[in-house]
Amino acid sequence: MNVIDSYLDTLFAPYPNTAQMQRARRELRDMMEDKFHALVASGVGESQAVGTVIAEFGSLDEIAPVLGIDVEMGEAAGARQARETTAPPLDPHRALRYVDAVRASRFTGGVSTALFVLSPVPLLLLLAIFRDSTGMASGITVGIGIAGVLVIVLLGILLNMRRGEQLAEFEDIENGAFTTTARIEEVAHRLEAEHRRQSSRGWMIAISLWVLCAVPLIVLSLISEGNSPLPLIGVVLTITMVAIGLVVVSTTTWSDAVVETLIGEDPDEDDEDAVMHPVVRAITAVYWPVVVAVYLGWSFLGSAWSQSWLVWPIAGVLYAGLLALGRVLDENRAQSDRSASN
């Protein structure tokens, strides 16, 4: 009877789950079950019996007016029509051109974001290299370093604008001003299937880089003595790892964003995961303000500016752990919800 149940599930899926519909489903299922058993008892094979039962089922449209679901069906159709009149259906060929445009601009987008992250690198490197015995840098060094920062930020902005131009003609798609059709869903699901492995590998590499990015900073700080420039080199390495992670993510997981734009679903998240565990959400809301307070408090009160920066990498790693914990808690909650409803 599994096939019959699945068949009925599919037929009833578009309709609201009212008591009226539940009763109709139950009675129709009873009819199908009786017919199935009668056919099997008369010597018909089970699969053939299922086929006959389904062939003789008929159409839910016929029942609708007498079940009072004509109103609900009408509302559903009305809502669909309203959506269609406000947003035109997306042409599948245009959707494919959009996919190609995003694919072509994935490096531009990734590199521009990475440049913003990497922008302090010239300043940090100059400070590490050109400094006197007390660890202080000259005004010229700082000036050149800041100029370097600004140049990199400018490059990032220009690249970002370039990406905007590449995708300008698809602005309506990016804003979701279209109606998804079955063909569009097909395009999205095929894209998702083609890039699933690449996308998950990309996330694994990027998350590994982001989790491990604190390591060079911590190690180099621990082995440095006096006014050694090693901690600054550590910061540069940490920033570089974060930036590489960003480039990896934007070049390998671009298809996830496209799928989400086209059909409104993130392939990596379902609804349950999208909602963070309430405790974790509460902690994340106050987390960074608290970290800033700790940093400033420790620095000012303990006059510990040379050590207090350690707060940041530690806080970063803890934050990643907190998010991972949130996801685990949420999956447990979703599982317990599911077992409770079964």
Binding site: D30, M31, D34, F57, L60, V66, L67
Partner: peptide
């Protein structure tokens, strides 16, 4: 009940009429 009514009609028809289940259910409702 619904299936029995449907079966009775099919039997009396001698196989000349196979009623769709939704047709019968609609009539009954």
């Amino acid at each position: 009940y619904a299936y029995e009514i449907s079966r009775t009609i099919t039997e009396i028809s001698g196989g000349t009429y196979a009623m769709k289940q939704t047709t019968l259910y609609t009539a009954v409702k």
